[in-house]
């Protein structure tokens, strides 16, 4: 295109835009639904990205407002901690603050630090890409992964769209992991953990985060996911013992009504309390 054409096109474009504003909303202005604040999804999506069936209240209630206030205070503290991570990373204060809930805006950073992702990733540069490629060609778990990606956190705005960006990322992370750790392959339950990581981390970081959770001495979720679930059974036995010892009445009551430990502790141990504590606390 020569200069004259370019100029003409720019002029046309400008006139077009100017005239749209001059006409205003009336006379059938072409507007996509999402361009207006009336777009329903804006009103039903909470601050974490979960889409609800009904419109959320316009004004946050006093309780909610107070929580946000508290979170803003925590943000300041966390920013300080993240700057001085070297000295902070093992303190009791950090531990306490994690249990109170990492502020939403800093979760990605905090998780990266806690799981030491940068170092782990650098030590195995190129590995993720290699695994991803390998998975596309060879992973025997692709079928189950596909089934589960299609129904993992579909009520979250990032995973809402079939084959959307984060669904692609989730598929890749789980596929790559299934060939990276052949003892585990893919186990149902991992898709939600990986998806939660992906809400705050990019694809490759989420992969390494999952890897650290499974293999690192501090977390060793390996025993949860390998066939037979040895670690899960051990945790549940232990939980029973604690209940019998410290809450015998409650334990008896639960037993009497057939509420066995396996039912209600599975998501606690197996999936890091996901879906069982408020998203606020993750």
């Amino acid at each position: 295109m020569n200069e004259e054409d370019l100029l003409r096109r720019a002029t046309e474009e400008r006139d077009n835009i100017v005239s749209r504003y001059a006409r205003g909303r009336e006379e059938g202005a072409p507007i996509d639904p999402w361009e207006d604040p009336g777009f329903e999804i804006y009103h039903a999506t909470d601050r974490y990205g979960f889409i609800h069936d009904n419109r959320l209240p316009q004004k946050a209630d006093p309780h909610e407002l107070r929580l946000r206030q508290v979170e803003m205070e925590r943000e300041k503290k966390w920013l300080k901690m993240l700057k001085a991570w070297g000295q902070m990373s093992t303190t009791e204060k950090l531990r306490r603050r994690i249990y109170k809930g990492i502020p939403n805006s800093l979760r990605g950073q905090a998780w990266s630090q806690l799981l030491n992702i940068k170092t782990v990733k650098e030590a195995q540069e190129g590995k993720y890409e290699e695994m991803r490629q390998l998975a596309w060609r060879w992973s025997p778990e692709i079928r189950q992964i596909d089934l589960d990606v299609n129904r993992t956190y579909r009520d979250h705005i990032m995973f809402r769209e079939r084959y959307g960006l984060k669904q692609q990322a989730l598929f890749n992370v789980l596929g790559a992991y299934s060939v990276y750790n052949l003892d585990i392959g893919y186990c149902q339950g991992m898709s939600q953990i990986a998806a939660l990581l992906l809400m705050y981390l990019n694809e490759e970081d989420a992969f390494w985060a999952l890897s650290v959770l499974v293999a690192d001495k501090r977390y060793t979720m390996h025993g949860f996911f390998i066939p037979g679930f040895p670690k899960l059974l051990r945790y549940q036995e232990h939980h029973d013992k604690i209940m019998n010892r410290f809450l015998p009445k409650l334990k008896k009551h639960l037993d009497k009504h057939g509420v066995d430990t396996g039912i209600y502790t599975l998501k606690w141990f197996f999936q890091c309390f996901l879906d069982r504590v408020s998203h606020l606390l993750h």
Binding site: R151, Y153, D155, G189, S191, Q192, G262, I263, K267, F270
Partner: peptide, 12 residues
Amino acid sequence: AELSDPTVGVDF
């Protein structure tokens, strides 16, 4: 349920 998460283990 238009959207339902995979069942992990057992549910009740």
